[in-house]
Design a protein around this nucleic acid. Structure first.
Ligand SMILES: [Mn+2]
Ligand SMILES: [Mn+2]
Ligand SMILES: [Mn+2]
Ligand SMILES: [Mn+2]
Lengths: 217, 217
DNA sequence: TTTCTTTTTTAGACATCCCTAAAAAAAGAT
DNA sequence: ATCTTTTTTTAGGGATGTCTAAAAAAGAAA
């Protein structure tokens, strides 16, 4: 497996290659900031290796081998993110870029031991679940903050947008994973929310609220 | 800098590109298990980037930029070896291969923090010095065991050969870095040595003795 | 259903890094 | 000084992964 092949598999998985709905050439190209013609080339290569099913003009779907492979790369990515965050004091908006490189290191022993060093974490610093060696994901029932009802309580357990700017916005407002949240009121005009988080009262725009995952009580 | 360019620089450095004596095309090819024609191609590329001085048929010499670059890659390699050995319980014969991959990860912050996590180690698990951020090497005065005189004492501080088979030979004979050694007698017939190490008496062949570094008292 | 637009593929090319085979230069031997 | 061997370079090409431009197919609109 080349680094490029691994990156394509991961992208296809993130674009929903999980289901049987095919992922389009253009969608992959946009996500990877590359050209559709390059994607077509790679689709053929991955199909050749039985990692995706590909039919001309029909997009690609991960095979079960492709899905397992993608999950193992995601496992490495997220374990490295935990390492950077827990052991090297990186901020949660700094871990992704370096993990993009580290996820391609090939050594099963390395990942097993890293997993042990970190005490077998189940979630990465953004609240995303870490696939096991067997490729299984701990699925946590979570709701977007924007979908809570007034008066509902919950725990902030994950972010949907993991961009630096969004993560830094949360830092600036002292919003961090694990905090308890209560939806006080939804303003029907602009869908903005009044919430109470760790005792503090805050107003959040709809856009913010659609990027915070809450585990309701 | 591509991964390949980095590997060439490191190899040239190890082959003595430190001094002004040029390193030959064939020597580099042999060390890297590649073909001389590939080395010639790369020599031109590195010269273009001012990392080596190259003149047709004269081999290559690292420029000071090339030397600094090589030392930073070696710094990363050895810090990762310490990490694998100290934090992930790898054996000293297992660290090199994975470090060959990790040394190419690009993140100054990562290396700085790793250095801190490891408590700014000065030597890697094989006793090799770790270059500083400034490229300076802690030079330790050390002698090959084969060059000690009868009756001399010292500490075992490094290995010259770092092959798996040699390292495992040492493990099997419970010879480990930091142990104190005394040369009892040299057999003039085959240059084998009778030594005392940590109280135990051992006989070592000349070949073994030429691969152990001793810091004499 | 025909036309227009968007998506996808193909054709051809370029950069990197590697190879083999052959030519050229350097080094060693007589 | 000439011949022989070794080293190094050049020439040409293959694999990977990318791109642009043009052709083909699919989808949407009229
Ligand atoms: Mn990430
Ligand atoms: Mn993450
Ligand atoms: Mn090493
Ligand atoms: Mn080492």
């Amino acid at each position: 497996m080349t680094r490029s092949e691994e990156n394509y598999l991961k992208t296809i998985y993130h674009l929903g290659g999980d289901e049987k709905v095919p992922v389009s050439t253009n969608a992959i190209a946009a996500q990877m900031e590359t050209k559709p013609s390059s994607v077509t080339d790679m689709a053929k290569k991955l199909a050749e290796k039985n990692l995706v099913d590909y039919q001309k003009y029909q997009g690609v779907v991960l095979t079960s081998l492709g899905k397992q492979t993608a999950l193992q790369i995601i496992r490495k990515h997220r374990l490295w993110e935990v390492f950077l965050y827990e052991k090297l004091d990186f901020q949660w908006d700094e871990v992704h870029e370096v993990a993009e490189q580290l996820e391609h290191i090939k050594s099963e022993q390395l990942i097993d031991r890293l997993d042990a060093l970190l005490n077998y974490p189940k979630f990465d610093p953004h609240g995303d679940p870490i696939p096991g060696k067997d490729g299984l994901l701990a699925v946590q029932k979570k709701t977007l903050l924007s979908e809570l009802e007034e008066g509902q309580n919950g725990l902030f357990v994950g972010v949907k947008d993991t961009s630096t700017s969004f993560l830094q916005y949360l830092d600036k407002n002292q919003i961090a994973l694990g905090q308890s949240i209560r939806l006080i009121e939804r303003e029907s005009f602009d869908q903005s929310l009044q919430i109470e988080i760790q005792g503090r009262s805050l107003r959040l725009s709809h856009q913010i609220a659609t990027n915070l995952y809450i585990k309701t009580d």
